[in-house]
């Protein structure tokens, strides 16, 4: 995706990374392509944080060019890259007028719930209201949230209750659960899902004092004198 050649208005061809290099990043001629690139990412389930931040930065420099639907797409895409802190990086670049938009506020709320790992509330929230329209703009949105859930569960649990896990993943049925378990190389036995032997990696550490020869050598030499 990123290496695709794009023909600009004056006939030269460039790739997206070339458009983002040093001062080219701020060239208004590239801007329409970068905005289009955001839409592409939403549709084709790809992701490029660097390019998206460049778009937000462009709005910061040129507030009159600010486009709310594109802003929303960028924020939603950033959520799909949890557990990375991309969302907060995007949020730092928002302008007051973007912060005031109701849809942006809604997306920030969703991100807030997810950052607190309140997955049960998240699934309730997206089911209750008429939110689907917003999230359907992003291909694979829900699965990327499930991937995030699996990441956090994977670092927290050694074994986890099957029912609780399926609730965290959005009340999925047994068939789907088996798929997610398989995908992560977990094992299902009875009511429990075994994640990984955490006890081998998460151990109490002892830091004991080590004195190197240099700091003591001189002192000991003095004693002999």
């Amino acid at each position: 995706m990123a290496t695709k050649m794009i023909t600009t208005d004056d006939g030269t061809t460039m790739t997206i990374p070339e458009m983002l290099k040093s001062i080219e990043r701020y060239n208004p001629k590239h801007f329409p392509f970068l905005e289009k690139y955001v839409q592409e990412q939403a549709k084709e389930n790809t992701y490029d944080l660097d390019a998206n931040l460049a778009v937000l930065k462009f709005y910061q420099f040129n507030p009159h060019m600010m486009n709310l639907p594109i802003t929303q797409l960028i924020l939603l895409k950033a959520i799909t890259n949890l557990p990375f802190s991309d969302f907060v990086l995007c949020k730092y670049l928002l302008l007051p007028v973007q912060m005031r938009d109701d849809t942006v506020k809604e997306i920030i709320y969703i991100a807030d719930i997810l950052e607190q790992c309140d997955f049960v509330l998240f699934w309730q929230h997206v089911q209750n209201k008429d939110k689907n329209e917003l999230f359907e703009k992003i291909t694979g949105f829900y699965d990327s949230i499930r991937k995030f859930v699996c990441h956090v569960v994977g670092t927290t649990f050694q074994t986890i209750d099957k029912v609780y896990l399926s609730r965290l993943l959005g009340n999925i049925d047994d068939k789907q659960l088996t798929q997610w378990v398989k995908k992560n190389n977990w094992t299902l036995s009875g009511d429990l899902v075994t994640i990984i032997k955490q006890e081998e990696t998460i151990k109490t550490k002892h830091i004991s004092e080590k004195i190197d020869f240099e700091s003591l050598g001189g002192l000991m030499a003095n004693c002999i004198n």
């Binding site: 927290t156 649990f157 955490q198 109490t204 550490k205 004195i211």
Partner: peptide, 26 residues
């Protein structure tokens, strides 16, 4: 401090630092 949950039990792993006598005496 780190931990993991095994079913309903939290297992905790802490970092213990022994007192640094050597540095003090030096």
């Amino acid at each position: 401090l780190d931990f993991y949950i095994d079913n309903n039990m939290i297992h905790i792993a802490d970092t213990k630092v022994s007192h640094r006598y050597g540095d003090f005496f030096i």
